[in-house]
Write a protein that binds this DNA or RNA. Sequence first.
DNA 1: CACTAAAGCGGAGGTGCCTCCGTTTATTTA
DNA 2: TAAATAAACGGAGGCACCTCCGCTTTAGTG
Lengths: 203, 203
Amino acid sequence: MPDQEMTAEATRDAPAPKALRADAQRNREKLVEVAAQAFAADGVDASLEDIAKRAGVGIGTLYRHFPTREHLVEVVYRREVEGLCHAAEELAREHPADVALELWMQRFVDYIATKRGLATSLRLLLTTNSTLFSDTSGRVSGAMRGLIDAASASGKIRADIDASDVMHALGGIYSAPNTPDWRERSGRLVKLLMDGLRFGARG
Amino acid sequence: MPDQEMTAEATRDAPAPKALRADAQRNREKLVEVAAQAFAADGVDASLEDIAKRAGVGIGTLYRHFPTREHLVEVVYRREVEGLCHAAEELAREHPADVALELWMQRFVDYIATKRGLATSLRLLLTTNSTLFSDTSGRVSGAMRGLIDAASASGKIRADIDASDVMHALGGIYSAPNTPDWRERSGRLVKLLMDGLRFGARG
DNA sequence: CACTAAAGCGGAGGTGCCTCCGTTTATTTA
DNA sequence: TAAATAAACGGAGGCACCTCCGCTTTAGTG
């Protein structure tokens, strides 16, 4: 197994991921964070120079880490998916199954918000880079299935629906028009859906 | 009432295409022509300012006619398809069926060459603008079917293949790697294909 | 520590995009 | 034909992209 720490870094599999210098690591992370905000707020066309500035680095640094806009978009998107899946586990650990599900779905709305901002570039990326599509969609629906099954098993929600039903229901969020109150309306939709799920539960 | 023209331009269908001024018409055509060359040569990223300059107009004129790069790409692409279909009819009229088919397939190679240059933008356009896809792919395969059927019926090529077989065979051109000698190799492929088609013909 | 090579930084500068608006030109009307 | 007017032109200017390379920082080494 690859022991990250210690002096040795030799045991790698792929070509050569190369250990990043501490400052480089910091900058990179900051850039992704700022970019995620910027994309969510202004869409994919957010100014890269602006992102660099707000991350407190030069434009050259941004381009060294992410040679093209698409690279950056992809990393931001993957991070978003990562966070979403991580949240599922954490919520499941810290809340009753039905509450965990509801909270997660609310977070799902955030995720969609980002995804919308990235729409144009993403569409291209997802058709081009097939790994990206299979990776991410699998992970998200997997995370959701875990929450649904747990809630269903514990009797907190009705047992006659499954993850794909709920995913389908949430589809309305994705295709909803981009009005200013989109965010609020989506939140209400989630609550409504939860009420429906709780109605007629065993427990 | 808005009876714009006397001479007879009144019979229009859509909202209001508006008659273009003579100079505007000229400029527009020149732009599309130059753009087609530029895209084929340098890919979709060909400089718009360059295109405008080579067409002998200001950059403002280009943008008035084609608000975005995609608009221009779409028009160029449609024109290409148009030309291809027109050529099919013309060749069928002026040559024996098998020769017409061969000449047309050589021209098809030109068409693919343009299409490759436009690849990135086109992919996006074709997934976004569904009319564009159904319009164009239908027209091209229709034109081809006409030539094949004629050649087949006249006994100049074998009768046990149809248009979709040939289209399939030409697929190799589209997916071939983009080497410098791509053009030549594709030409040879067409010849080879024609020999195969002529072999065992009735006539 | 002091030193050094390598890694990383950053921003000036060249290029293309696109908007805006004063000037030119085709067309219509008298 | 000349004047009037609406359409079209074109390019300057402002902004973002991205490359390039001299300068700075880090992380090892003696």
